[in-house]
Amino acid sequence: MDKHDYHFISIKFLTAILMALVFAFLFVYVFTPQLREDYPIYSLQKSSLELSESPALFASSPQNMEVTMTAEKLRFKEKLKDRSFELMEQSKKTMLAVISANYLEKMNGLREKQMLALEAERRRLEAREKRLLQEKRQELEAELSQKLQQLRQEIRNKYSDFNQEQIRDNYLKMINLRLKIEFIARNESEREKYQQQLEKVKAEQQALIARKNSELNESISHRTSLLIMEFNQQYAAYREQLRTQQREILSQLRTKIENELAAARKEIKSDLAAAREQKAANMEQLIKKTKKEYY
């Protein structure tokens, strides 16, 4: 609703008031019956079976009735005038309230628009964060996989010669002992002796291999844990970096919106005060003119 609509509303209110005043004027001064001097005077009489007539209880003269009607018209006119003035003041307050409500609605609409823009920016940043984190995770996972492959190869190369000579000697010993058991032993006692030696070499060989595998696995596990920890730290640092940027962007946008709303609020408040003052002056002038012309 613009200022032209306010003007039309004020005209409608004042037109209604003026029409009410005109009808009241016609009712008081045109349609009110006038007393005539030749009106008959009625009297109430008391009758009974014994008495044919009794004195009149009361009588009213035309002059008294005219005075009474005149006083009644004056009271009605005064009440009508007071009611008209009251309606004028109510119309003035209503118009000012309408102006205030429209400016308040304008301010609320502007704030809602800015809040929607802030929410849209927040959703956009969240979608951006999700996309960038997914890309970063894929990148870090590819790097981790490559580092793990290099790590395994590096550790295998490092432990390739670990106790290799002793392990090879043990394999040769086991082969010789098997040959002795099968072909050289002359009796059961010698076979049992060679078998015990074979079991001893096997146990030693298994211990060497287990030790080698244990150290190999331990080294791989330790280095792998370090790589995974590095992966998690890089991912967490990148995520925190994105969220810090997001908070800064939203904070700057929120500050900008608050400043814009403060400026708009100040401007709207000034416009509202000017509009109310102008409308109040116009209404007051119109009310004074109406009072002067009709009262």
Results as ranks from 00 to 15, higher is better:
Arg254Pro: 01
Leu87Ile: 07
Ala262Tyr: 14
Phe58His: 07
His7Gln: 09
Gln134Phe: 11
Lys200Thr: 14
Asn102Asp: 11
Phe13Tyr: 10
Arg152Tyr: 00
Glu139Leu: 14
Phe85Lys: 10
His7Arg: 10
Ser61Thr: 03
Val28Arg: 14
Thr94Gly: 04
Glu154Thr: 00
Glu190Gly: 08
Asn259Gly: 04
Arg243Met: 13
Glu293Lys: 12
Lys77Thr: 09
Lys289Ser: 12
Ile228Pro: 01
Pro40Phe: 07
Gln285Gly: 04
Tyr238Gln: 07
Gln114Val: 04
Lys73Ser: 02
Gln285Tyr: 00
Pro55Lys: 13
Thr70His: 10
Ala97Asn: 08
Lys46Thr: 10
Lys180Ile: 06
Leu125Arg: 00
Glu258Phe: 10
Lys279Ser: 11
Val98Ser: 07
Met107Trp: 00
Met107Pro: 06
Phe8Met: 08
Gln246Arg: 12
Glu165Lys: 14
Asn170Leu: 09
Ala275Asn: 04
Lys193His: 15
His222Phe: 15
Ala275Gly: 02
Ile287Tyr: 00
Ile184Ser: 12
Lys3Pro: 03
Arg276Cys: 08
Ala71Val: 06
Glu182Thr: 12
Tyr103Leu: 00
Lys77Leu: 11
Ile167Trp: 03
Gln146Asp: 09
Lys288Pro: 03
Glu139Ile: 07
Met283Cys: 04
Glu190Tyr: 01
Leu110Arg: 02
Gln138Ser: 13
Leu26Gln: 12
Arg239Tyr: 07
Lys202His: 04
Leu286Met: 06
Asp2Trp: 06
Asn170Tyr: 08
Leu172Ala: 14
Tyr159Asp: 01
Phe13His: 14
Tyr29Ala: 12
Ala236Ser: 05
Glu199Met: 09
Leu198Asn: 10
Tyr42Met: 13
Lys269Glu: 15
Ala101Gly: 11
Ala117Phe: 10
Leu35His: 11
Gln153Thr: 00
Leu140Glu: 06
Tyr294Ala: 00
Phe183Leu: 15
Gln149Ser: 05
Arg36Trp: 05
Gln285Cys: 02
